[in-house]
Amino acid sequence: MRAALERYESPLTHYAARMLNGDVERARDVVQDTFLKLWTADRASVDGHLGQWLYRVCRNRALDVCKKEMRMTALTETQLSMQADSRSEADRHDAAPTCASAFAAMQTLPQRQQEVIRLKFQGGLSYREIANVMDLTVTHVGVLIHTGLKAIREKMIASGTGPSRVPQSEVIQ
């Protein structure tokens, strides 16, 4: 159990924070709740796919929180404007053409592509697991990751920092 906490605490918090427009405090709450769930969960339902389980529970939690927040923003002006401020880079991806790293490039992608990429490369989940977490088909996940990686590569090349096209001769060996 502790190992699970160690392994997934930080990735999940990052993930939840992304889902929650960068709100780390709330992300921590979500992650804490996720692990509380894990403590009381039926072992059989978790064993063998811990990562997938955690990400899924975490995601559902975060979405719950998002939904609530949306309701509240409808009620209070302050919150509304706060939320507008905290809108993540995801919604501003047109505005940031230069990308110092693959990571920065990723952050310019649409939310969903970012999410699959995070699940893949941070969470280490397989396509199928990602599909289960996000309620998508495996094919859809494949397309999202493919498109995402391609976009990242192109953005990096455009900004001159990315891996340039590898000479073909190197590839062959």
Binding site: H14, A27, F103, R153, R165, Q168, V171
Partner: peptide
């Protein structure tokens, strides 16, 4: 060859991403 090059590029990008995710500052409870 173009397919091989594409695979290579994908792997490069993927390993860059993995590395950068791994280097994300720890963020925890």
């Amino acid at each position: 060859e173009s397919l091989a090059a594409a695979v290579n590029e994908i792997r490069q990008t993927a390993s860059l991403l993995s590395a950068e995710f791994a280097a994300e500052p720890a963020l925890g409870l």
